[in-house]
Design a protein around this nucleic acid. Structure first.
Lengths: 155, 155
DNA sequence: TGATTTCCCATGGTATCCCATAGTTAACAG
DNA sequence: CTGTTAACTATGGGATACCATGGGAAATCA
Protein backbone atom coordinates (compact mmCIF):
# COMPACT_ATOMS: atom_id res chain seq x y z
CA UNK A 1 0.00 0.00 0.00
CA UNK A 2 1.24 3.48 -0.86
CA UNK A 3 1.01 5.91 2.04
CA UNK A 4 2.43 9.29 3.05
CA UNK A 5 3.68 12.24 1.08
CA UNK A 6 7.33 12.72 0.14
CA UNK A 7 9.05 15.46 -1.77
CA UNK A 8 12.19 14.54 -3.69
CA UNK A 9 14.51 16.41 -5.99
CA UNK A 10 14.75 16.05 -9.76
CA UNK A 11 18.31 16.37 -11.04
CA UNK A 12 19.53 17.77 -14.34
CA UNK A 13 19.12 14.40 -16.04
CA UNK A 14 15.47 14.13 -15.04
CA UNK A 15 16.18 11.53 -12.39
CA UNK A 16 14.17 11.32 -9.19
CA UNK A 17 14.40 8.97 -6.24
CA UNK A 18 11.22 6.97 -5.75
CA UNK A 19 10.53 7.03 -1.99
CA UNK A 20 11.96 3.94 -0.35
CA UNK A 21 8.66 2.72 1.06
CA UNK A 22 7.04 3.03 -2.37
CA UNK A 23 9.83 0.88 -3.77
CA UNK A 24 9.23 -1.62 -1.01
CA UNK A 25 5.57 -2.03 -1.94
CA UNK A 26 6.23 -2.72 -5.63
CA UNK A 27 9.18 -4.98 -5.01
CA UNK A 28 8.12 -8.57 -5.48
CA UNK A 29 5.34 -7.73 -7.92
CA UNK A 30 7.44 -9.00 -10.80
CA UNK A 31 8.73 -5.70 -12.18
CA UNK A 32 11.48 -3.66 -10.50
CA UNK A 33 10.00 -0.29 -11.32
CA UNK A 34 6.79 1.69 -11.56
CA UNK A 35 4.27 2.53 -14.26
CA UNK A 36 3.44 6.20 -14.67
CA UNK A 37 0.90 7.97 -16.89
CA UNK A 38 -0.74 11.35 -17.29
CA UNK A 39 -3.77 11.89 -15.11
CA UNK A 40 -6.93 12.53 -17.14
CA UNK A 41 -8.16 14.74 -14.30
CA UNK A 42 -5.46 17.37 -13.98
CA UNK A 43 -1.87 18.41 -14.36
CA UNK A 44 -0.29 15.62 -12.43
CA UNK A 45 0.86 12.05 -12.95
CA UNK A 46 -0.57 8.81 -11.68
CA UNK A 47 1.41 5.67 -11.07
CA UNK A 48 1.57 2.25 -9.50
CA UNK A 49 3.22 -1.12 -9.61
CA UNK A 50 2.63 -4.06 -11.89
CA UNK A 51 -0.23 -5.31 -9.74
CA UNK A 52 -2.19 -2.10 -10.23
CA UNK A 53 -1.80 -2.35 -13.98
CA UNK A 54 -3.10 -5.88 -13.89
CA UNK A 55 -6.06 -4.85 -11.76
CA UNK A 56 -6.87 -2.01 -14.13
CA UNK A 57 -6.59 -4.38 -17.04
CA UNK A 58 -9.09 -6.73 -15.46
CA UNK A 59 -11.46 -3.87 -14.68
CA UNK A 60 -11.34 -2.69 -18.28
CA UNK A 61 -11.90 -6.22 -19.57
CA UNK A 62 -15.19 -6.16 -17.73
CA UNK A 63 -16.41 -3.23 -19.76
CA UNK A 64 -18.51 -3.63 -22.89
CA UNK A 65 -16.16 -3.84 -25.93
CA UNK A 66 -18.04 -1.01 -27.63
CA UNK A 67 -18.28 1.23 -24.61
CA UNK A 68 -16.47 4.43 -25.59
CA UNK A 69 -15.20 4.65 -22.03
CA UNK A 70 -13.32 1.42 -22.59
CA UNK A 71 -11.37 2.71 -25.54
CA UNK A 72 -10.66 5.91 -23.67
CA UNK A 73 -9.29 4.06 -20.68
CA UNK A 74 -7.21 1.78 -22.82
CA UNK A 75 -5.77 4.72 -24.66
CA UNK A 76 -4.93 6.78 -21.57
CA UNK A 77 -3.66 4.06 -19.29
CA UNK A 78 -2.09 1.42 -21.50
CA UNK A 79 -1.23 3.68 -24.38
CA UNK A 80 0.09 6.50 -22.24
CA UNK A 81 1.72 4.59 -19.41
CA UNK A 82 5.48 4.36 -19.29
CA UNK A 83 7.34 1.61 -17.50
CA UNK A 84 10.10 3.27 -15.50
CA UNK A 85 12.76 0.96 -14.17
CA UNK A 86 14.68 1.63 -10.97
CA UNK A 87 18.38 2.17 -11.33
CA UNK A 88 20.72 0.63 -8.77
CA UNK A 89 19.97 3.39 -6.26
CA UNK A 90 16.20 3.37 -6.66
CA UNK A 91 15.75 6.28 -9.05
CA UNK A 92 13.73 6.55 -12.25
CA UNK A 93 14.15 9.03 -15.09
CA UNK A 94 10.97 10.87 -15.92
CA UNK A 95 10.31 11.24 -19.67
CA UNK A 96 10.06 14.84 -20.83
CA UNK A 97 6.45 14.62 -21.96
CA UNK A 98 5.33 13.42 -18.55
CA UNK A 99 7.30 16.16 -16.83
CA UNK A 100 5.71 18.71 -19.13
CA UNK A 101 2.20 17.48 -18.38
CA UNK A 102 2.68 17.85 -14.63
CA UNK A 103 4.73 21.03 -14.85
CA UNK A 104 7.62 19.31 -13.11
CA UNK A 105 10.93 21.05 -12.80
CA UNK A 106 13.20 20.77 -9.79
CA UNK A 107 11.09 18.77 -7.35
CA UNK A 108 8.42 16.10 -7.35
CA UNK A 109 5.80 15.43 -4.69
CA UNK A 110 4.91 11.75 -4.30
CA UNK A 111 1.50 11.19 -2.72
CA UNK A 112 0.47 7.74 -1.57
CA UNK A 113 -3.14 6.96 -2.50
CA UNK A 114 -3.53 3.42 -1.25
CA UNK A 115 -3.13 1.18 -4.23
CA UNK A 116 -1.79 3.92 -6.48
CA UNK A 117 0.18 7.13 -6.13
CA UNK A 118 0.35 10.58 -7.67
CA UNK A 119 3.24 12.84 -8.66
CA UNK A 120 2.76 16.60 -8.45
CA UNK A 121 4.78 19.72 -8.85
CA UNK A 122 5.14 21.31 -5.38
CA UNK A 123 3.46 24.50 -6.52
CA UNK A 124 0.31 23.00 -7.98
CA UNK A 125 0.14 20.52 -5.14
CA UNK A 126 0.07 23.27 -2.54
CA UNK A 127 -2.78 24.90 -4.41
CA UNK A 128 -4.83 21.72 -4.47
CA UNK A 129 -4.09 20.55 -0.97
CA UNK A 130 -6.39 22.98 0.80
CA UNK A 131 -9.20 22.15 -1.59
CA UNK A 132 -8.76 18.43 -0.89
CA UNK A 133 -8.84 18.98 2.84
CA UNK A 134 -12.02 21.00 2.58
CA UNK A 135 -13.72 18.44 0.34
CA UNK A 136 -12.71 15.60 2.64
CA UNK A 137 -14.07 17.37 5.70
CA UNK A 138 -17.35 18.27 4.02
CA UNK A 139 -17.95 14.80 2.63
CA UNK A 140 -16.84 12.89 5.65
CA UNK A 141 -20.30 11.42 6.02
CA UNK A 142 -19.94 9.59 2.73
CA UNK A 143 -17.35 7.29 4.31
CA UNK A 144 -19.25 4.47 5.89
CA UNK A 145 -17.88 2.19 8.55
CA UNK A 146 -17.54 -1.47 7.76
CA UNK A 147 -20.45 -2.31 10.05
CA UNK A 148 -22.68 0.18 8.34
CA UNK A 149 -21.71 -0.98 4.86
CA UNK A 150 -22.38 -4.60 5.73
CA UNK A 151 -25.71 -3.78 7.30
CA UNK A 152 -26.83 -1.79 4.27
CA UNK A 153 -25.58 -4.46 1.86
CA UNK A 154 -27.87 -7.00 3.46
CA UNK A 155 -31.04 -5.08 2.79
CA UNK B 1 -9.20 -2.75 20.33
CA UNK B 2 -7.36 0.27 21.70
CA UNK B 3 -8.33 1.14 25.26
CA UNK B 4 -7.01 3.21 28.16
CA UNK B 5 -4.68 6.16 28.31
CA UNK B 6 -0.89 6.01 28.60
CA UNK B 7 1.74 8.69 28.75
CA UNK B 8 5.22 7.89 27.44
CA UNK B 9 8.41 9.86 26.96
CA UNK B 10 9.84 11.09 23.69
CA UNK B 11 13.62 10.95 23.50
CA UNK B 12 16.02 13.24 21.67
CA UNK B 13 15.68 11.21 18.46
CA UNK B 14 11.91 11.52 18.46
CA UNK B 15 11.39 7.96 19.55
CA UNK B 16 8.47 6.94 21.72
CA UNK B 17 7.37 3.58 23.09
CA UNK B 18 3.98 2.53 21.80
CA UNK B 19 2.04 1.17 24.81
CA UNK B 20 2.41 -2.58 25.01
CA UNK B 21 -1.32 -3.29 24.81
CA UNK B 22 -1.58 -1.13 21.68
CA UNK B 23 1.20 -3.18 20.13
CA UNK B 24 -0.64 -6.34 21.04
CA UNK B 25 -3.76 -5.27 19.15
CA UNK B 26 -1.95 -4.45 15.90
CA UNK B 27 0.29 -7.51 16.02
CA UNK B 28 -1.01 -10.11 13.62
CA UNK B 29 -2.63 -7.56 11.30
CA UNK B 30 0.16 -8.02 8.79
CA UNK B 31 2.21 -4.92 9.55
CA UNK B 32 4.45 -4.64 12.62
CA UNK B 33 3.77 -0.98 13.23
CA UNK B 34 1.13 1.72 13.25
CA UNK B 35 -0.15 4.32 10.81
CA UNK B 36 -0.29 7.86 12.13
CA UNK B 37 -1.67 11.03 10.56
CA UNK B 38 -2.58 14.58 11.47
CA UNK B 39 -6.09 14.98 12.76
CA UNK B 40 -8.14 17.29 10.52
CA UNK B 41 -10.02 18.42 13.60
CA UNK B 42 -7.36 19.65 15.97
CA UNK B 43 -3.76 19.74 17.08
CA UNK B 44 -3.31 16.07 17.73
CA UNK B 45 -2.52 12.87 15.84
CA UNK B 46 -4.70 9.93 14.97
CA UNK B 47 -3.48 6.41 14.39
CA UNK B 48 -4.37 2.80 13.95
CA UNK B 49 -3.19 -0.52 12.62
CA UNK B 50 -3.24 -1.96 9.14
CA UNK B 51 -6.82 -3.16 9.58
CA UNK B 52 -8.10 0.36 10.12
CA UNK B 53 -6.36 1.54 6.95
CA UNK B 54 -7.87 -1.34 5.01
CA UNK B 55 -11.32 -0.51 6.36
CA UNK B 56 -10.91 3.08 5.25
CA UNK B 57 -9.70 1.88 1.90
CA UNK B 58 -12.80 -0.27 1.48
CA UNK B 59 -15.03 2.62 2.50
CA UNK B 60 -13.41 4.80 -0.16
CA UNK B 61 -13.75 2.04 -2.77
CA UNK B 62 -17.46 2.28 -2.16
CA UNK B 63 -17.53 5.83 -3.54
CA UNK B 64 -18.01 6.78 -7.17
CA UNK B 65 -14.60 6.65 -8.93
CA UNK B 66 -15.23 10.01 -10.54
CA UNK B 67 -16.45 11.76 -7.42
CA UNK B 68 -13.90 14.50 -6.62
CA UNK B 69 -14.54 13.83 -2.95
CA UNK B 70 -13.15 10.36 -3.44
CA UNK B 71 -9.77 11.59 -4.60
CA UNK B 72 -9.83 14.16 -1.83
CA UNK B 73 -10.32 11.46 0.79
CA UNK B 74 -7.55 9.38 -0.70
CA UNK B 75 -5.15 12.30 -0.66
CA UNK B 76 -5.98 13.36 2.88
CA UNK B 77 -6.06 9.91 4.46
CA UNK B 78 -3.37 7.99 2.58
CA UNK B 79 -1.27 10.96 1.59
CA UNK B 80 -1.26 12.30 5.10
CA UNK B 81 -0.57 9.03 6.91
CA UNK B 82 2.87 7.76 7.78
CA UNK B 83 3.72 4.11 8.33
CA UNK B 84 5.77 3.87 11.52
CA UNK B 85 7.47 0.56 12.13
CA UNK B 86 8.24 -0.78 15.59
CA UNK B 87 11.90 -1.21 16.44
CA UNK B 88 13.00 -4.28 18.36
CA UNK B 89 11.80 -2.74 21.64
CA UNK B 90 8.45 -1.53 20.42
CA UNK B 91 9.21 2.11 19.73
CA UNK B 92 8.43 4.25 16.70
CA UNK B 93 10.12 7.48 15.65
CA UNK B 94 7.70 10.32 15.13
CA UNK B 95 8.45 12.43 12.03
CA UNK B 96 9.13 16.07 12.77
CA UNK B 97 6.13 17.40 10.89
CA UNK B 98 3.75 15.22 12.86
CA UNK B 99 5.33 16.29 16.13
CA UNK B 100 4.97 19.90 15.08
CA UNK B 101 1.29 19.51 14.26
CA UNK B 102 0.49 18.09 17.69
CA UNK B 103 2.89 20.34 19.57
CA UNK B 104 4.74 17.30 20.89
CA UNK B 105 7.96 17.74 22.76
CA UNK B 106 9.02 15.56 25.67
CA UNK B 107 5.98 13.40 26.23
CA UNK B 108 3.10 11.85 24.31
CA UNK B 109 -0.32 10.83 25.58
CA UNK B 110 -1.76 7.74 23.88
CA UNK B 111 -5.53 7.51 24.10
CA UNK B 112 -7.37 4.38 23.06
CA UNK B 113 -10.48 5.15 21.01
CA UNK B 114 -11.72 1.69 20.09
CA UNK B 115 -10.54 0.91 16.60
CA UNK B 116 -8.20 3.88 16.48
CA UNK B 117 -6.15 5.92 18.91
CA UNK B 118 -5.00 9.49 19.40
CA UNK B 119 -1.69 11.03 20.37
CA UNK B 120 -1.71 14.30 22.28
CA UNK B 121 0.69 16.61 23.98
CA UNK B 122 0.02 16.37 27.73
CA UNK B 123 -0.75 20.07 27.99
CA UNK B 124 -3.33 20.33 25.22
CA UNK B 125 -4.82 17.02 26.26
CA UNK B 126 -5.50 18.24 29.77
CA UNK B 127 -7.24 21.27 28.38
CA UNK B 128 -9.48 19.22 26.11
CA UNK B 129 -10.25 16.45 28.54
CA UNK B 130 -12.61 18.44 30.66
CA UNK B 131 -14.47 19.63 27.61
CA UNK B 132 -14.83 16.03 26.36
CA UNK B 133 -16.20 14.95 29.71
CA UNK B 134 -18.83 17.65 29.56
CA UNK B 135 -19.81 16.70 25.99
CA UNK B 136 -20.07 13.03 26.90
CA UNK B 137 -22.44 13.85 29.73
CA UNK B 138 -24.65 15.97 27.52
CA UNK B 139 -24.84 13.43 24.66
CA UNK B 140 -25.30 10.40 26.81
CA UNK B 141 -28.53 9.48 25.05
CA UNK B 142 -26.83 8.95 21.70
CA UNK B 143 -25.22 5.71 22.88
CA UNK B 144 -27.81 3.03 22.41
CA UNK B 145 -27.73 -0.36 23.99
CA UNK B 146 -27.36 -3.39 21.72
CA UNK B 147 -30.97 -4.41 22.43
CA UNK B 148 -32.23 -1.01 21.43
CA UNK B 149 -30.16 -0.94 18.21
CA UNK B 150 -31.43 -4.34 17.15
CA UNK B 151 -34.98 -3.43 17.95
CA UNK B 152 -34.74 -0.28 15.85
CA UNK B 153 -33.08 -2.07 12.96
CA UNK B 154 -36.01 -4.45 12.66
CA UNK B 155 -38.59 -1.78 12.22
C1' DT C 1 30.64 12.75 -33.95
C1' DG C 2 27.68 14.97 -30.76
C1' DA C 3 24.07 14.34 -27.69
C1' DT C 4 21.53 11.32 -24.68
C1' DT C 5 20.96 7.75 -21.94
C1' DT C 6 22.42 4.03 -18.91
C1' DC C 7 25.38 2.23 -15.59
C1' DC C 8 28.58 2.68 -11.77
C1' DC C 9 30.89 4.73 -7.78
C1' DA C 10 31.18 8.45 -4.08
C1' DT C 11 29.25 11.15 -0.09
C1' DG C 12 26.70 13.41 3.66
C1' DG C 13 23.12 13.02 6.51
C1' DT C 14 19.67 10.52 8.68
C1' DA C 15 17.34 6.75 10.53
C1' DT C 16 17.57 2.16 11.89
C1' DC C 17 19.56 -1.52 14.33
C1' DC C 18 21.70 -3.34 18.29
C1' DC C 19 23.25 -3.51 22.93
C1' DA C 20 22.80 -2.00 27.77
C1' DT C 21 20.16 -0.35 32.02
C1' DA C 22 16.36 0.20 35.25
C1' DG C 23 11.92 -0.44 36.99
C1' DT C 24 7.65 -3.38 37.23
C1' DT C 25 4.99 -7.25 37.10
C1' DA C 26 4.55 -12.43 37.11
C1' DA C 27 5.92 -16.74 38.44
C1' DC C 28 7.52 -19.75 41.70
C1' DA C 29 9.72 -22.36 45.14
C1' DG C 30 10.92 -22.46 49.93
C1' DC D 1 3.70 -15.57 53.27
C1' DT D 2 8.04 -14.18 51.47
C1' DG D 3 12.12 -13.75 49.14
C1' DT D 4 14.11 -14.77 44.57
C1' DT D 5 14.05 -15.46 39.80
C1' DA D 6 12.43 -14.56 35.44
C1' DA D 7 10.03 -11.96 31.80
C1' DC D 8 8.77 -7.72 29.90
C1' DT D 9 8.31 -2.72 29.57
C1' DA D 10 10.21 1.74 29.03
C1' DT D 11 14.36 4.27 28.18
C1' DG D 12 19.33 5.76 26.74
C1' DG D 13 23.26 5.84 23.65
C1' DG D 14 26.61 4.25 20.02
C1' DA D 15 27.48 2.03 15.66
C1' DT D 16 25.89 0.75 11.36
C1' DA D 17 23.23 0.65 7.26
C1' DC D 18 20.40 2.89 4.20
C1' DC D 19 18.54 6.85 1.71
C1' DA D 20 18.68 10.66 -1.32
C1' DT D 21 21.71 12.99 -4.21
C1' DG D 22 25.84 14.29 -7.25
C1' DG D 23 29.00 13.37 -10.81
C1' DG D 24 31.71 10.64 -14.19
C1' DA D 25 32.48 6.77 -17.59
C1' DA D 26 30.62 3.58 -20.80
C1' DA D 27 27.01 2.53 -24.08
C1' DT D 28 23.47 3.83 -27.39
C1' DC D 29 21.19 6.46 -30.85
C1' DA D 30 20.69 9.87 -34.51
Amino acid sequence: MFVSTTINGIDAKGRVSVPADFRATVTGQGFAGVYVWRSPFGDYLEGGGLRLLEDLHDAIEDLDPFDPARAAHERVIFGGAKALMFDSTGRVTLPKDLMAHAGLDKQAVFIGMGQRFEIWDPKSHAETEEEALRLARENRGALKSRRRREREAQS
